[in-house]
């Protein structure tokens, strides 16, 4: 196949353009991979002359930062469990039962959820949590996140469950299963890929958030990693780049491994129904 000069030129310029855009996005990632292993890392990208783990040793000695990772884990897992279970049950009920106005329930909740977890509602949320006496507890963070994420999780899952034929549970019930057995044996396994998506999404949301824990928590022992990361700033407010980079890499590790695990185990695809 021969190409005309024009076609050649347009292909070349297209490739060059995409390469430039690709590089622009790849640079921060490269920095993110190299800087933690560089004893003299700066904000500029630099391939370290000597790869060292010294940055990590220093980070591991920072008790506050390590405790922060554990706190993030507690809050994320707590939130994910609460969101996962409640969203599954709520979405199943909203999809399968004849609740009048069930469509509008989901939409109104969805509308308000962006308010709940947004900064606009911070003052009322603080006041509510405060009057509940939950300020400075993991429970407070978990509850607020669950409230903010549930409507969207319910919305995603309800849509997912709507796409699954009712005849699955009906055939189970005719076969002799109670409604609960039909849910557990038949519906739940079919919905599971949808639940996994919601769980990953909720985990990433809570793991990466800063504002809510920052406002609701007081004591250092409870602060999550997103807040603890500020212990790698000097008192003048300038980051200690080497430690910050190392800590950031550790901080991102659970999210990346979660994605890889889910992708390996579930493949991020849906069972769906059998083709009719």
């Amino acid at each position: 196949m021969t190409l005309s000069f024009h076609q050649m030129l347009s292909r070349i310029s297209f490739s060059v353009l995409t390469a430039i855009i690709g590089i622009a996005f790849a640079l921060p990632l490269l920095w993110f991979l190299f800087a933690p292993f560089n004893a003299r890392a700066e904000l500029g990208l630099e391939i370290p002359a000597v790869f060292t783990l010294q940055n990590f040793y220093t980070v591991f000695e920072n008790k506050f930062a390590m405790r922060g990772l554990l706190n993030s884990f507690i809050q994320s897992v707590g939130g994910v469990v609460l969101v996962g279970i409640s969203a599954t049950l709520a979405a199943y009920a909203l999809s399968r039962s004849d609740v009048p106005g069930k469509k509008s329930i989901t939409y109104i909740l969805l509308l308000f959820s962006s308010v709940v977890s947004g900064s606009a509602a911070m003052v009322p949320i603080f006041l509510i949590i405060s009057s509940l006496g939950l300020i400075d507890t993991h429970i407070a963070v978990i509850l607020v996140f669950a409230g903010g994420l549930l409507p969207t999780a319910m919305f995603i899952l309800r849509d997912f469950i709507d796409g699954i034929p009712k005849s699955y549970e009906e055939s189970a019930m005719v076969a002799g299963a109670s409604s609960m057995q039909a849910f557990r044996d038949v519906a739940l396994p079919v919905i599971r890929p949808g639940i996994v998506v919601v769980v990953v999404w909720a985990f990433v949301n809570i793991w990466g958030s800063f504002l809510i824990p920052f406002i609701l928590l007081r004591s250092d022992e409870l602060m999550p990693a997103s807040v603890a990361i500020y212990s790698f700033y000097s008192e003048a407010g300038t980051p200690i780049v080497t430690l910050l980079a190392a800590y950031a890499l550790i901080y991102s590790f659970p999210v990346i491994s979660l994605y890889l695990f889910v992708n390996w185990k579930f493949g991020f695809r849906f069972f769906g129904g059998i083709k009719a």
Binding site: P165, S167, Y168, E170, S171, A172, M173, V174, A175, G176, A177, S178, D185, V186, P189, V190, F271, G272, G273, I274, A276
Partner: peptide, 16 residues
Amino acid sequence: RDRKISMVFQDYALYP
């Protein structure tokens, strides 16, 4: 479940 019946569905409703 209590009716002692069996049913074949149009879409078969086999559990995937």
